[in-house]
Simulated scan of single mutants.
Amino acid sequence: MKVKIKCWNGVAVWRWDVPNEEVCGICRVHFDGCCPTCKTPGDDCPLIWGECTHVFHMHCLLRWLQTEGSRGQCPMDRRTWGNFEIGFFF
């Protein structure tokens, strides 16, 4: 018996490769989703790692750093914020 495939539709799943964390520490949305500002996850809603190794949606962190109460500190451990890496990769 032979089977002939007439049509094939591929499906892919992506996810951020974030060790030890599953949700943004600011908005509490899963990293595979997107921040409240964005409509779709992925390159338009990148993640940003701090020198302290905490990870956030870039838009959430930028809003946080613009508030007076942030004092330029990480929202998780209150160390001075320093960018380590912005994730535009899967």
Rank of each mutant, 00 (worst) to 15 (best):
C45L: 06
M58W: 05
L47A: 10
E51K: 14
V13L: 10
E21S: 08
V18P: 01
L47I: 05
L61W: 01
P36H: 00
K2C: 13
D44F: 14
D44R: 12
G50S: 11
K39G: 13
W16F: 14
I5V: 15
W16K: 11
A12C: 15
W49M: 08
H57C: 11
D17Y: 08
P36D: 01
G50D: 08
I48H: 05
G25E: 02
C52W: 04
C60Q: 04
R28K: 07
D32V: 03
C45I: 06
T40Y: 13
G42R: 02
T53N: 08
P46E: 06
R15H: 10
V13P: 10
C7A: 15
V29A: 10
A12M: 14
C7K: 10
V18W: 01
W14M: 10
V55K: 00
R15Q: 09
M58N: 07
K2L: 11
V29N: 06
C45Y: 04
P36C: 02
E21Y: 05
C38H: 03
P41S: 06
E22H: 11
I48K: 04
E22T: 13
T37Y: 08
V23R: 02
T40L: 15
H30A: 12
D17E: 09
G42L: 01
L61N: 02
K2G: 15
C24P: 06
V3P: 12
K6G: 15
C7T: 13
W16D: 12
V23G: 07
E22A: 14
N20H: 07
T37W: 06
V11L: 07
V18T: 02
P41N: 03
D32M: 02
C52Y: 06
V11M: 06
C38M: 04
M58H: 07
G42F: 02
V55F: 01
L47W: 01
P46Y: 07
G42S: 02
R28V: 08
L61I: 04
F31Y: 00
T37F: 10
E51R: 13
F56T: 01
P19V: 02
V18G: 03
G42C: 04
C45N: 08
C45W: 03
G33C: 08
G10K: 07
C35Y: 00
V11Y: 06
C60K: 02
C60P: 09
N20D: 07
